[in-house]
Each structure stands twice: as C-alpha cells, then as structure tokens.
Nucleic acid binder design. Sequence first.
DNA 1: TCGATATGACTCACGAGTAAGTTACCACAT
DNA 2: ATGTGGTAACTTACTCGTGAGTCATATCGA
Lengths: 219, 219
Amino acid sequence: MTSTAAPGSNAGTKGVARADREAQIVDVACRVFGESGFAGTSVADIAEAAGISKPLIYNYFGSKEGLYAVCVRYAASTLVDEIERTAQTGEVGLARAVVTLDGMFRVLAPQPWIWRLVFDPTSPPDGEVAEILADHEQRILTFGLEGVAELLRQVGNTDERDTSAMRAVWENVFRTLVTWWLENPDSPEEMTQRCIRLFDSVFGDGTQPLGTVSGSRGA
Amino acid sequence: MTSTAAPGSNAGTKGVARADREAQIVDVACRVFGESGFAGTSVADIAEAAGISKPLIYNYFGSKEGLYAVCVRYAASTLVDEIERTAQTGEVGLARAVVTLDGMFRVLAPQPWIWRLVFDPTSPPDGEVAEILADHEQRILTFGLEGVAELLRQVGNTDERDTSAMRAVWENVFRTLVTWWLENPDSPEEMTQRCIRLFDSVFGDGTQPLGTVSGSRGA
DNA sequence: TCGATATGACTCACGAGTAAGTTACCACAT
DNA sequence: ATGTGGTAACTTACTCGTGAGTCATATCGA
C-alpha cells in the first residue's frame, strides 16, 4: 500500500479560512521565534505550538525564512510606528528620549517578544529579513541621534569618530533600558519614572528635573 | 575492501608533540569561533583552518564544546587578568573606568577575536562553557559597579531596582565602547583618549578633566 | 615492535523542504 | 432535499543535506 495518509487520519480542512490560519500562525511564530531566536527554532516547533502540521506552514509562507520575514516585518513596523508616533509630540533632547522609551514600554507590555525578534542575533544576515531589518533598525534607534551630535558640539567636539562612538553608546543605552525592563518587568509607568530618575542622576544638575514630561502621551 | 585509510595516505605522525598541536588548535579555534560564533562554526572548519583532520580534535578535546570551553577559558581569563591588573592602580570612579578600558584596548589589540568569544550570543546556554562564563563575566563587568551605586546614592537614590538598571546600562556602555572600537579600529591610545573626551562631555563640568589619568599603565 | 600521532570513511540525529494523498465545504444540477 | 464534482484546507511519510561524533587503519620515532 502506497497510501501516505491513512483513512481516518486528521487530514482535511478544519474549516479555518486561510487568512485566519495565517494570522494565527504568525502570532504563534512571533512568540516562539522571540523566545528561542531564529536559529534555535525549528518549523516543527512552530507547527506543534500552533496545533497544525509543518507542510501547512510551507504552503502558506514558502519557507522558514519567509515566515520569519512576516514576523519581523510585523515586529519592526510595530516598533517604528510607535517611535514615529511619539516623535510627533515635538519633544527634543532627553525629554524626547523619555517619551520614546515610554512609548516602547507601552507597546511591548502586551507583546514583549517582538523586541527580541527585531534584535535577534541569530537572524539570517542576508536576504529579505536582513533588508527589512536594515530598513527599520535605523529608524528604530536613530530617533535621538541628532541629540548626541548636539551634545558633543556643545562642548566643542565635532570629531566624526567621537560622534560615531557616542551614537553607538546612546543606542545601546536605549536598548539596554528596554532589555533590562523585559527581564525585570514592571508597569510601563513605573519604568518610565525609573528612566527619568536615572537620567536625572546622570545629567541633571538638580534644578529642572525631567519629571515634567512624565505621563505624556501624545495624540 | 574494508580498508579505511589507503596506503600512501597522509595518515601518521607529523612529528608534532601533543602539547604543541593542542596549542595550535586552540589558537586557530579561538579565531574561527571568534569570527563565526560557536553555532556558526563546524569542527571541520577548524580542522581545515588548522591543517589537520577532524578526529584529531576529538582525540584531544573530546567534543566541539570541549574545545570551545578551552578557548572560552583562555579568552575569559585573559580579560579578567587584565581587569584585575588595572584594578590595582587604585583609581576610583570614572578614572578607574578609563584605566580599565585602556587595559582592554591593549590586550585586545593583538587578539581582538577573544572579545567575541566571551560575548558570543550563540554559545551553549548550559554545561561547562556556561559555568566558565558565569564565573568570569561577573568579574569582567563588575569592576566599576560600586561606582554606579555610589553615583545614585549621591543623588539620594537607594532603590534596588534603579541600581540594577543603572548597572545594566553601565555594563553595556563599557561593552559598547569596546565593541565599537573593534568595529572601528584605532590605536588603543587614541581610543582611550576618545573615551576620556566622551566621559568629559557627559559628566564633566569642564573644571577637572579626566585627562590626568591618560596613559596610566600600572605595575 | 610499541605507542603516540594522525587520517579516510563511516554512522547517526536533526531539521529544512516536498510528494502525494485525504477530508470537508460549497455551488449547482436534479 | 439530495447526489456530485471541484477546490481549498490539511496531513502523513518521505528525501536530502549538514554537521557532530566514531572506528578501523596507517605511519613514524624511539
């Protein structure tokens, strides 16, 4: 008998429309990829977590990387949208950083895994995913970088390499605050207040604290 | 024909003593692991780069992870040794940070790949390697952490979670400066000067710059 | 000739991707 | 209302490549 799917098997439609199924798979995949990373996740893992079979994923997304690309696109654009939303508040300098961080904490609170999706070190370095990340990552982390150059200019430093290094540092301060929060969860409000305190500790001269921007949530 | 190594093959001793061969393999492995990460490196890659065959590596190191453990141990203790050496200069606060960074740049200049070995995100999360890293990583990055708590205390903040977050930030500032330098190479001296300028820009009030500790190299 | 050094050719597990089949819904003819 | 066929949804059981780890054998210095 060359029959590959025995009668009485689970094969066959379960009445779930393709669009619904795709959305469900993407949702599950985001969490699993976010937890284990691209390299650490097998397509079978996702299929099992979603309660379906592996070939269905290939039917709908073509490849592991195809599915991953959809997840990354969703994650990246979620973060970018939030950043560009908070950018409209018109804050500048540290206040802008606080508002942006506050926005991050709020979007990430219900779906913390999407952060790891965007910054997954095992994500494939070439191909579609890399392009998506290249497109978005800059926008995700570039928001306050003019502020860095400005800070250095104020003390008379216009060196390009100094500015580049300082940008890298600032980028990672931002990333670290978010990452720390994901590993040490809090309410977004509390974490924003914490960031304000920390910025004040480092930068503040005590006279005009950042506290005034707390709780701001534009448009 | 059950012969597995044909007559006239390359099999047989090449007169290299085991200790020498081991050292050579570790040296090559450090570079390859450092470039491609643990997960991205196959044992065959290392064997080829070292000009030997795969089974020899298993003879000497038992497993891929066994070899990796030796590499990580070397890398981690190199960094820790340097940190503990500079700690003896007795500097405190930011000056200590500068001295430590300066030491890092000098050890890493001739063997930059060992940094990546210690902070490889694809390194196995359990087992011997994880233990080695857990033992060393703390010492690598903890050097200035009392300074963080002190900074916060000075502004009247003794909150534990604030301190924890601030520690994470400072850790990553340190890491980012080193990583940026590895990706944008410079002489160690120039990079140390850069760090001094950047610290001055952020923390300095302009009156007593950190420049006085430049070039310090203890004991 | 014995033991250390060394290798070619294997096994085995795992994960990406595929071929070929099964089941259920639905439009439509009767 | 009921058979009938087309099609979308779905699965089982495979292939195939890759990389970790092993075995049996070969060479050479002492």
